[in-house]
Amino acid sequence: MRALTWQGTGKVSVETVGDPKIQEPTDAIVRITSTAICGSDLHLYNVLGMYLDAGDILGHEPMGIVEEVGDEVSNIRPGDRVVIPFNISCGHCWMCSRGYFAQCETTQVTEHGKGASLFGFTKLYGQVPGGQAEYLRVPQAQFGPIKVPEGHPDERYLFLSDVLTTSWQAAQWADITPGGTVFVTGLGPIGQMSARIARHLGAGRVIATDHVPERLEMARRNGVEVIDFDEVDDVPGAVMDLTSGRGADSVIEAVGMEAHGTPFQEFAQKAAGMLPDALARTAIDKAGVDRMGALRTAFAAVRRAGTVSIVGVYGGQADPIPMFDLFDKGVTLRMGQAHVKRWADEVLPLLTGDDDPLGVDDLVTHRLPLEQAPHAYEIFEKKEDGCVKVVLKP
């Protein structure tokens, strides 16, 4: 089969690799019909190469048609149309029984002290071959795949794999109150959907910041007030001005480790990426090399006794955060990988009708063949050609 493979920092290529096969009775094989590029894939593309090997298959936002199932898989069968959650969870362990599917004890990567295995996402999370490919082996298929109906193109359902469920969790964990004010840092795909979901959940006002014109315009047409941080010296100050000096009730931090405005940390990330793998892993594991600009903006913009929901991915172990300010303000912090199956049943009914209340149909800007995936990564990383979200078609 053909698959998108990591070949080095800033380098991916589509290669011919072996077809996946059933290895465990709880496996399934899915023929991929659509698969998206995530902002987290850019962390692998740019920063976290020390945890990858050349030839690793990337991608964790896939959907397709079931081709084959193992003997212990009875919830799906060949011919079913399914979305595959990005985290791999068993559905029956102590963590899964409590809805913490991103911490599944069956698939936890205990060797590295990490949570549930993820598709296409480094040795830290199991080094499981990803979904930017023609076919995908799905472990724990007795629980994970989400069956979806016919009647809409893939893109209506595809983002249950990550974007929609991650954004839904981000909004739920932001303690949004009816009529309250929500501030979102970053208007990539997660920020876009988090802002729309915040409105759907009853926020009276949603404000967001970014600087990419196409992202700002997309947010505006979906009812979000925007702050262009290239035109404002003090984004938290602007939020304070818009909220009578109080700050936002809820903040969703949707940028993560590659935020703008932190040149020292940006240099440290790039320097770490050029080290031999063993030294680079030590630098990432022990040093605070995340870019903290978006997180500092979130902390400064939230009101006293407000909530910050962190959905942007961070990786540094020694990142400095303003604990005195957070303690003084009495801020609640919630964060972590999305527990996809926890939210899927709530989100799916919003996708099956014709009204599209979450605006899912207004997210994809580029649909490209899998063979053009390297070009897709380049324009997504550089924010060229109005690129907000790419879907690849194997």
Rank of each mutant, 00 (worst) to 15 (best):
G273N: 07
A238M: 12
V347Y: 01
L295Q: 08
T181W: 00
V82Q: 00
G59Q: 01
R246M: 13
E61V: 01
V184P: 00
G39P: 04
V388I: 15
S161Y: 04
M323T: 15
D56I: 05
D162R: 04
E258T: 13
D362M: 09
A219F: 03
G191N: 06
G39E: 04
P263D: 07
D241V: 06
I37Y: 00
R342K: 15
A280F: 01
L136W: 00
V390A: 11
A298V: 09
T243R: 02
D356R: 09
E231T: 13
Q103T: 11
S89H: 05
V30R: 01
P349C: 10
A203F: 00
G204A: 07
R81H: 13
D328P: 04
R246S: 12
R334M: 02
Q142D: 15
V226I: 14
F183N: 10
S250P: 11
V66S: 00
V206P: 02
T106A: 14
A36K: 02
R199Y: 00
K286Q: 14
T122N: 09
V66I: 12
I65V: 15
H375Y: 14
L279Y: 08
A248D: 06
R281W: 06
G191W: 01
P320E: 13
R77P: 01
H60M: 03
L392N: 10
L358Q: 11
D53K: 15
W173D: 15
P178K: 13
V163D: 10
G353H: 08
C90V: 08
F86Q: 09
K11H: 14
R281Q: 13
H260V: 12
E225H: 12
I207M: 09
A116T: 12
A305E: 14
G70I: 03
V232W: 03
A203V: 03
D53E: 15
I197C: 07
E266K: 11
G49H: 03
H200D: 08
V302I: 10
R205L: 03
V232F: 07
L370Q: 11
D154P: 06
M240W: 06
C104W: 03
T9H: 02
G188H: 00
L187A: 09
D362I: 05
I197Y: 02
L118F: 05
D328T: 12
T332A: 13
R199M: 07
T181R: 05
R156N: 12
W94Q: 12
D175I: 02
S244D: 15
G316S: 11
T35P: 04
S97F: 06
V331H: 08
P369H: 12
M335Y: 12
I57D: 03
I321N: 11
A3P: 00
P145N: 13
I32Y: 01
L333V: 15
C104A: 10
L358E: 09
A300Y: 04
C93E: 07
E371H: 10
D234Q: 11
G191H: 07
Q317M: 13
H43F: 04
D249Y: 05
T26S: 13
V163S: 09
D354E: 14
G10N: 10
R281N: 10
V30K: 05
Y125K: 11
A280G: 15
G247W: 00
G256N: 09
P394R: 03
G204Q: 07
